[in-house]
Design a protein around this nucleic acid. Structure first.
Lengths: 336, 336
DNA sequence: TTGTAGGCGTTATCAT
DNA sequence: ATGATAACGCCTACAA
């Protein structure tokens, strides 16, 4: 079943059929009705490949999600879906492995889907430096700052990772903590990990607190298990710290367990703080203190910025949306 | 950049270029080398649309994942990736919304990608009953039993949801529990929810335990928040139960919190058991008792069955892989 | 082994 | 408003 068959069936030429099916103007109400009815009756669907092969531009907006397992991205995709559904554009969501190059993927999908713009959820600045030049449609990098990259068509919307970590540490310091252990990520791979580490160091420096990374820092992957192991390692080296700051909630969850197994209670003996604001954190015992990324705002601003660029040709811009400190049960004051 | 350009560049005809690029036989070693080199140098990539438009069959295997948020599926996709990577096939993963029709989606993707077979991760039997007849390639439905459907090209690999729930209840009964509250899902929508509920009823019946669904059952959605709310509702009606069985770990997590807020400790006052075997369950305090789905086995058998059908034309079959009871800290014996 | 040419189903550009 | 027709980039007979 092709538009040719539909053309034969209705008596209209293929061109008219195509226009009717695509909602183009210059089709009489009568023709449109007849053609749409015939299409529906025969269960006809446009051949995507042929369509995309021929089309020079679409009304597609592309979201490339790097890291399927990231819960925040799941939430954001949903919000973006809803936002785009209210426009005349179509959203295409593409999930890809964390270890592949998202810019290559984007390039490929540009050829294939001819999108008007791209939203990158997660990404590695290095990949952008190398290959983004070949992309010429408006893009927004979400959760990674791209202001340094200076591409005229690449915006970014982020929370200030450095400030967030600094704020977390500061809030612990304000509660009287001086020896704070840190569970981080791989700073050589992840910009976020690097910035959060940097933020911690900044906070320590501001309060003249000496921090010994050899003793009080572990760099691991984003998982409960790694948070657990990191904490075991920290405890083995020294258990003089009064708080742990983990740069991801899942790590913090593992940390709480490890502490518990070593006879240390949270927050009575040790305070624990995470980052992300996972919905689940609210339901743990104790509730997990965390720095909450404003997921819906990130999504909203990203879409707005992308649409402005697509519709009005707005220039690239780089925005920061504010985080919030959720000081919940897993931290306590040790002020005298 | 098209194969025409490549043809001009290398002096070979487009036909030869196409054959070389696709690893077809009847291309001289010399030609292949020259063409591949030219392609690499110019960063050439085949136009997917044109290719798929023309192709009558591919070496694609398709995975349709229904429910992005399901953590188990995330794990399974990874395993499937690795398994397929060792074959001569290419894996295409498609994530779709929980509330859309996966068989429609499959039909669409069949036209577009011309896959040799499909793996459905999650799915609703009703959708299959209605529309699966139009699909004529081997398929495997994972985590939903399709034996009743009797399609010659639809296999299924499942854990026995009914038996799993029955086993969970039985294990609680064995520990001395008689009044067990249940947090379930929507039985009208989800086969899994229905079967698990059924399993619970079976266990109660076998032990001559009366179960009052009005009092001790709540049907909600799969989330911490819903588990929390369901538990609040249960407690409001009666707090005579000694255990809660939640048909998903995330619900169980919410339940623990709700109990705690009502001054009830787990497992001292109330035992809590979930289903799924989320990795995180191991790191909670208390560790969450659960029925563990054998994710890697589900994935492995599914792939094996699909490949057997594709390669050898093996008949459809319906397999059950065994679950395991993880009796962890969140349950305790109340035997006298 | 290599070249040639037709066609996949659609959109887009003309002309009507 | 509609019709005819030329691409889009590739694959695949078939011919050489």
């Amino acid at each position: 079943m092709t538009i040719k068959d539909l053309s034969a069936k209705t008596g209209y030429a293929v061109g008219t059929v195509s226009r009717a099916l695509n909602g183009h103007p210059n089709v009489s109400e009568k023709a449109r009705k007849i053609i749409l009815k015939a299409a529906k009756e025969s269960g006809f669907e446009l051949n995507v490949n042929a369509k995309q092969l021929k089309q020079t531009h679409s009304t597609n907006i592309l979201v490339i999600v790097k890291g399927i397992r990231n819960e925040l991205f799941g939430e954001m995709v949903e919000i973006i879906q809803n936002l785009i559904a209210q426009t005349r554009y179509q959203l295409i969501v593409d999930y890809m492995d964390e270890d592949l190059n998202e810019v290559h993927r984007a390039l490929q999908l540009c050829k294939e889907k001819k999108p008007l713009g791209i939203l990158f959820l997660g990404g590695n600045n290095q990949n952008f430096v190398r290959d983004f030049g070949k992309i010429d449609i408006p893009c927004v990098l979400v959760t990674n700052d791209a202001s340094m990259l200076q591409f005229h068509n690449l915006s970014s919307v982020t929370t200030d990772d450095l400030a967030a970590a600094r704020c977390a540490i500061n809030s612990l310091i304000a509660l009287g903590h001086r020896r704070i252990a840190i569970i981080g990520g791989d700073r050589t791979i992840s910009d976020t990990s690097r910035l959060r580490y940097e933020g911690c160091m900044r906070a320590f420096a501001e309060h003249d607190i000496e921090f010994d990374p050899k003793r009080d820092y572990q760099g691991v992957r984003y998982s409960c298990q790694d948070g657990y192991r990191a904490t075991q390692a920290l405890l083995k080296k020294s258990c003089q710290f009064t708080a742990i700051f983990a740069i991801a909630d899942v790590m913090a969850i593992g940390a709480v367990r490890a502490l518990w197994e070593n006879g240390l209670r949270v927050p009575e003996d040790i305070s624990v703080m995470g980052v992300d604001g996972l919905p689940m954190g609210d339901y743990l015992v104790p509730q997990l203190a965390t720095i909450c990324q404003p997921v819906s705002q990130l999504a909203k601003r990203s879409v707005e910025i992308l649409l402005a660029a697509i519709v009005d040709g707005a220039a690239a811009c780089h925005e920061t949306v504010p985080f919030t400190v959720l000081s919940r049960e897993s931290v306590r004051s040790i002020q005298i």
